[in-house]
C-alpha cells in the first residue's frame, strides 16, 4: 500500500493502509497525540474497487484481515468513514480476547458507566458530553469486557457525531479536535471529534462496570428498572462476538448483569439526560 499509519486505540492496535494519501492524512490529523505501535493487531486496507477507480470517480472498498463480502464501497471524500468502518469491522469479526459490546462508556472514580442502545439512541453524544463534564470518556462505539477479570477496557477512538449532535458539541469542544465535516454519508452528516487528552492518556486503563443504561432519545424523561435477564438479552444483541466467545461470553455477560444495576433512561434532550445520569449515578454507583 502506498500510504499507511499505525494506531493504538485502547489495548488494541491497527495498521491502516490506503491507495490514496487523503484518508491517511485525515487519520493522522484526527488521531494526533495517539501512540503509534510497532506491530498491529489488525490490518485495514482502503483500496479502489477496480484499478481505474483509483483515478476516475475514486471509490473506496473496505478491505482488511476480515471482510464482509457485500460491504458497499464509499466515495473517496468519505475515506475517513471507510477507515473507521474498516477498524470496527476488524474488531467485530476478529477480536476474541474481549467481549465486545456495542456501547459507549465513561468512567468516574475507577467505575464505569455503560450506555448501550440502538443507533440513534444518543449514546455517542451522551458519552462525548459526559467526557467533557467530569467523566473520563472511554469510548462511543465499543466497550471491551475482559471475561477473566470482569473489567471494562476503553476503546476511545474518535467520536463519530451525527447530524444535530455536531452543533451541540461544538459549544464544548475546541475546533482543532474536530475532523472534516462529511456530508451525505450512509449515516447522514458526520463529524468526528478527537477525545480529550485525559481519555487518550489513560486509554489502556480499565474500570470496573458499575451501571448499565439503555438510553432512548426523544421521549419524555423516564427511568425504568431493567431486570438482569432482560439486560442480559439486550446485551447479547449488542455484542458482536458473543456467540464466538462461547461459554466465556456467557460467563462474562451473566457476571456483568449480576454485578451491575441496569436502567432504561428515556430523555427529551441532552441537558435533561445529563442531569438524570448524575442523579442515578450518585444512587446506583455507591
Amino acid at each position: 500500500m502506498r500510504h499507511g499509519v499505525n494506531l493504538a486505540v485502547g489495548p488494541l492496535s491497527f495498521r491502516v493502509g490506503s491507495a490514496w494519501p487523503g484518508p491517511v492524512a485525515a487519520l493522522r490529523h484526527l488521531y494526533a497525540g495517539y501512540p503509534g505501535c510497532e506491530t498491529a493487531d489488525f490490518t485495514v486496507r482502503l483500496e479502489p474497487v477496480t484499478p481505474w477507480r483509483r483515478w476516475v470517480r475514486p471509490s473506496v472498498a473496505i478491505q482488511g484481515d476480515y471482510v464482509l463480502p457485500d460491504a458497499a464501497p464509499l466515495p473517496l471524500a468519505h475515506g475517513l468513514v471507510a477507515a473507521e468502518m474498516g477498524m470496527n469491522l476488524q474488531m467485530a469479526l476478529g477480536e476474541r480476547r474481549y467481549l465486545l459490546l456495542h456501547a459507549a462508556s465513561v468512567e468516574k472514580d475507577g467505575r464505569a458507566l455503560i450506555l448501550t442502545g440502538e443507533s440513534g439512541a444518543g449514546k455517542s453524544t451522551l458519552a462525548a458530553w459526559l467526557g467533557e463534564h467530569g467523566w473520563r470518556f472511554m469510548g462511543d462505539e465499543f466497550a471491551l469486557l475482559e471475561p477473566e477479570t470482569g473489567l471494562l477496557f476503553p476503546f476511545p477512538r474518535a467520536v463519530s457525531l451525527k447530524n444535530e449532535s455536531i452543533a451541540a458539541m461544538a459549544a464544548f469542544v475546541a475546533g482543532d479536535r474536530f475532523g472534516p465535516r462529511l456530508e451525505g454519508t450512509p449515516k447522514g452528516t458526520i463529524r468526528h471529534i478527537r477525545p480529550n487528552d485525559q481519555a487518550v492518556a489513560r486509554m489502556t486503563e480499565p474500570a470496573r462496570p458499575a451501571l448499565i443504561l439503555f438510553p432512548r432519545f426523544g421521549h419524555a424523561a423516564e427511568i425504568r428498572p431493567v431486570g438482569p435477564a432482560e439486560a442480559f438479552m439486550r446485551l447479547t444483541q449488542a455484542s458482536t462476538n458473543y456467540v464466538a466467545l462461547g461459554q466465556r461470553g456467557f460467563d462474562a455477560l451473566t457476571g456483568l448483569v449480576q454485578n451491575c444495576r441496569a436502567l432504561a433512561l428515556d430523555y427529551p434532550d441532552g441537558a435533561k439526560a445529563a442531569e438524570l445520569i448524575e442523579l442515578i449515578w450518585a444512587e446506583a454507583a455507591r
Binding site: E38, D41, R96, R97, A244
Partner: peptide
C-alpha cells in the same frame, strides 16, 4: 503484542 494475538488465535482454535 504479537504473543497476545497468537494466544487469542490458539484459544479460538478450541471454539
Amino acid at each position: 503484542r504479537v504473543e497476545r494475538l497468537l494466544a487469542m488465535h490458539r484459544a479460538d482454535a478450541g471454539r
